[in-house]
Structure formats: structure tokens, C-alpha cells
């Protein structure tokens, strides 16, 4: 069983200081707090090559963003079918932590859709979505 604490210790999918924002980037926020999740995707052969995040907020927010990036990069699944409950179940989030899962999913899917909309050639596109 994965715990928040174990994932928080590594946060392997955090975007490093020297890593540029990639082909599609999107942010998600929540009116419930000042937390914010930003996910950047890079694509290769029509699929996600890498997913990285930056985030401000609670441990749940940081871990949900990290988990969503891992899912996008290694899961091989369609990110548009990902649900916040998938994140919540994987990280054993409490009900009060659901906004964290919603933000992670919203940021990931918004980034993916951005890439679909503008095409793989356009770089550093950004948009912000709000998670309720």
C-alpha cells in the first residue's frame, strides 16, 4: 500500500530547475485553497514521452501531481479516461483531499488536450483550469 509519505519523499516526476517547459503545459487550481498543479508533457510518436509537474500546496496535492505524471508517462493508458477517484484510491486519499486528485487529473488532461488542439509543433502553450 503506497502512502503519501513514501511518495512525498521522492516526488520523482517533479520538473527540475533546468528542465524547460515542454510541448504542452496546463495548470489547475482549486477554490478550496491556494494549491496549484502544473503539468508539462512532451510527446514522441504520438504518445507521451515524458510528464513532469510543479505544484504548490499540501502533500496530497504534490503527491497527486506526481502520481498523475507517473501514470501518464509509464501507464501507457489513455490519460483522458483517468478519474480523480483513480488517483485518490492509489494514494489512499481522504475525502477532504479529493481536490488534490481533481487538480492533478484536470492539469494532466488539460495539457493533453492542449497538445491535441494545437498540434505537436507548438511549444510552451499554457492554459489554466479551475477545479471545483
Amino acid at each position: 500500500m503506497e502512502t503519501l509519505r513514501a511518495r512525498f519523499e521522492t516526488l520523482r516526476w517533479a520538473r527540475g530547475a533546468d528542465e524547460p517547459i515542454t510541448e504542452a503545459t496546463a495548470r489547475a487550481t482549486t477554490p478550496a485553497s491556494d494549491d496549484v498543479v502544473e503539468i508539462s508533457l512532451r510527446f514522441c510518436d504520438g504518445g507521451i514521452e515524458s510528464a513532469r509537474f510543479r505544484a504548490h500546496g499540501s502533500p496530497a496535492t504534490l503527491c497527486a501531481a506526481d502520481w498523475a505524471c507517473e501514470y501518464a508517462e509509464t501507464g501507457g493508458a489513455d490519460v483522458l479516461t483517468l478519474c480523480a477517484t483513480d488517483v485518490a484510491e492509489a494514494l489512499h486519499l481522504a475525502r477532504i483531499q479529493m481536490p488534490a486528485a481533481l487538480m492533478a487529473v484536470d492539469a494532466l488532461q488539460a495539457a493533453y488536450r492542449r497538445w491535441q488542439d494545437v498540434g505537436a509543433q507548438e511549444h510552451q502553450s499554457q492554459q489554466t483550469v479551475s477545479t471545483v
Binding site: 516526488l11 517533479a14 495548470r27 502544473e38 510543479r54 505544484a55 504548490h56 504534490l62
Partner: peptide, 10 residues
């Protein structure tokens, strides 16, 4: 570490 994780100002 937390500062480095933060997104740049929108």
C-alpha cells in the same frame, strides 16, 4: 525543496 517545486508565476 518546496520552493523549487513551485510553478513559476502565472
Amino acid at each position: 525543496r518546496l520552493t523549487a517545486l513551485q510553478p513559476e508565476a502565472a
